[in-house]
Simulated scan of single mutants.
Amino acid sequence: MQLDGDLYSRVIAWMKILLPLAALGLLSTLFLISRTVDPTQQVIVDEIDLEQRAHEQGVTNPSFAGVTGGGDEVMFQAERARPDLSNPERLIADTVMARFRLTEGTIVDITSEHADMHQSNFTASLDGNVTVTTSNGYLIHTDRIDARYDYLHAETPGPVEGSGPPGEITAGKMRLVSNEETGIAELVFTDGVKLIYKPNGSKD
C-alpha cells in the first residue's frame, strides 16, 4: 500500500508540472498561427483623432431649448457643433434641426445642413438645403433662413418655393413672425408671390 501511495504522489507531482507546460504550448501555438497585427497603426489613428478633437473643441449631438418672450418654445439640435476659435460667442453646427412650438399649438420644424449661431445676440443662420415644415400643412424649401430664439422671428434673405393648404407657392422672401395685434404666428410671403391654387390638395 505504501508503494501505491508513493506512485500516486509522484503522478500528481508530475501532472502539476506537465499540465501547465502543455497549456503554455497551446497558447504559444495560437499566437504563432494568428494573423500578424501592427499595433502602432491603431496608436497613430488614436493620436490623430485626439489631436483633432482637442483642436476643434467640438461636441456631438448638442441640443438646447428655451422659451421666447411670447411663450413660444424653441429647441435646437445638431449632429455636431464647434466654437469659432476667433469668436467664442459664435457656434458652428452641422446637420441642424430647429423646432418652434408656438403658443397656439402649431409646430414649425426647420432643418438644414449647417448653422451659424451667435449666443449673445440670440441669432442663428441656417443654410444648406433648408426645409421648413409646419404642422398645419406647409412645406417650404430655401437656401437660407435667419432666425432668433429670444422672440419669434425667422426670415429668408432669398427666394422660397413649396406648398401649403392653398396650393404651390413661390416667393422672393418668407417671414415667420407673430402678429402684433393678435399674437398669432403667421407665415408671410413677399416679393413677387406666385400661388397655383389647388383646392383640397388637388394635383391637377
Rank of each mutant, 00 (worst) to 15 (best):
D146S: 06
V188E: 14
D4E: 15
H114A: 09
T133P: 01
I44P: 02
G183V: 06
G69H: 06
T68G: 09
M117Y: 11
V45L: 15
L50D: 10
F100H: 11
E155K: 11
E155L: 08
F189M: 06
E155A: 13
I44V: 15
G192N: 10
T36H: 11
V160D: 02
T106L: 03
R80D: 05
M75P: 00
D127Y: 15
P83N: 08
T95W: 10
P157V: 04
V160Y: 02
V188P: 06
A13Q: 14
K198T: 08
L152I: 04
L139W: 14
P39A: 03
G192D: 06
L21W: 06
Y149P: 00
E89T: 12
S9F: 11
K198L: 15
V188G: 03
I17S: 07
G167S: 04
D143Q: 15
G162Y: 08
S120I: 09
D72Y: 08
T142D: 06
V43H: 08
N129T: 10
A98P: 00
F64V: 00
Y151W: 11
A185Q: 05
Q57G: 02
D191I: 07
M174S: 00
V96C: 05
D146E: 14
Y151V: 06
A185M: 03
G66D: 11
Y8E: 13
S120D: 12
L187C: 05
A147R: 00
I44K: 12
Y149C: 00
Q77K: 13
D204P: 10
D6T: 14
G25W: 08
D49R: 13
G25M: 07
A78D: 01
G183P: 02
S178H: 05
P166N: 06
Q42N: 09
T68R: 06
T111H: 04
P159S: 12
F100K: 03
N129H: 07
M1L: 13
V74H: 01
Q119V: 05
G105P: 05
D38P: 06
G66E: 05
